[in-house]
Design a protein around this nucleic acid. Structure first.
Lengths: 93, 93
DNA sequence: TTCTATTGTTCACAATTACCGAACAATAGA
DNA sequence: TCTATTGTTCGGTAATTGTGAACAATAGAA
């Protein structure tokens, strides 16, 4: 819950869910159109990773991350969907 | 989301949902079996109130609070249920 | 190999936020 | 009025978060 309570992290998760093949830090910040230092982005990714929400894989020089949909849905059914739906309602309205 | 990310606030909401007639700060801390200063409890209630999760009503010298179920369910369907279910799974397991 | 470019992490410090005790406000009853 | 109870506000301190600089790791070019 703490990992998903930060608005920046929530928007990162929302972007990761849209991108099927995963995203790295640089792609994420450019898609979010927010100026975020890479150290801050790295911290957010670390929190998301340690909380089990995303998994990351090294591809050459970059680190590609994806949402762990299956694990999350089996452990907390409907949770991420409900949170993202609420977030979109607030964020895009 | 921020209001629901704190474990103490989440346990307060869980207790409030169980108590049909609402609870005040003192009753809440005793039910949670946690030693929490009343100033801290007051802050948590203020955050829950300002975020629209609970509503409070003065009854004599005490302040009785309830979860705003209808408003929350109509605006964010399934959100609170999913969060509380996930919380119980982590908390009582 | 060595140099350069790119991506991401770590560290230390600054800024922000949360916690808590003390004083205060409000209400009820003796 | 006096006392007891509940809750809020305020100030200082502790904890957390954001950030730039330095560093690590990988890939490709020279």
């Amino acid at each position: 819950m703490h990992a998903l309570s930060d608005p920046v992290r929530l928007s990162i998760v929302a972007e990761l869910r849209k991108a099927e093949e995963g995203l790295n830090c640089v792609e994420t910040t450019s898609r979010l159109k927010c100026t975020m230092p890479k150290s801050t982005c790295s911290q957010h990714y670390r929190i998301l990773r340690e909380s089990g929400i995303i998994q990351s894989e090294r591809r050459g020089v970059e680190l590609t991350s994806k949402v762990r949909r299956k694990e999350l849905d089996s452990r907390f059914p409907g949770l991420l969907d409900a949170i993202l739906k609420a977030w979109r309602r607030e964020h895009e309205a």
